[in-house]
């Protein structure tokens, strides 16, 4: 399966998802695989609705 560690680029920035998605087929949908970089502390996470900052801010900000 995929490497379960966030990819470290040259500058030490962690990318929390696989890029690119490989081995795709027609008539199939693909959600990118998330990779762990960092998590928010518990109380901040509870307020945000998730421990993962990369899963916030999608589909417009509310």
């Amino acid at each position: 399966m995929k490497e379960n560690v966030g990819m470290m680029a040259a500058g030490g920035t962690c990318i929390p998802l696989e890029t690119p998605i490989e081995n795709v087929r027609l008539a199939h949908a693909y959600v990118p695989w998330q990779l762990l970089c960092g998590t928010m502390p518990p109380i901040q996470s509870l307020k945000a609705g998730t421990i993962f900052p990369e899963l916030t801010g999608h589909y417009g900000v509310w």
């Binding site: 379960n4 560690v5 998330q34 762990l36 998590t39 996470s45 509870l46 993962f52």
Partner: peptide
Amino acid sequence: FYAVDMALYLNTHPDDTEA
């Protein structure tokens, strides 16, 4: 809540030892 969200991640990433 932290444990719940991390457990959901682990369900699809069972080999992630850091998580």
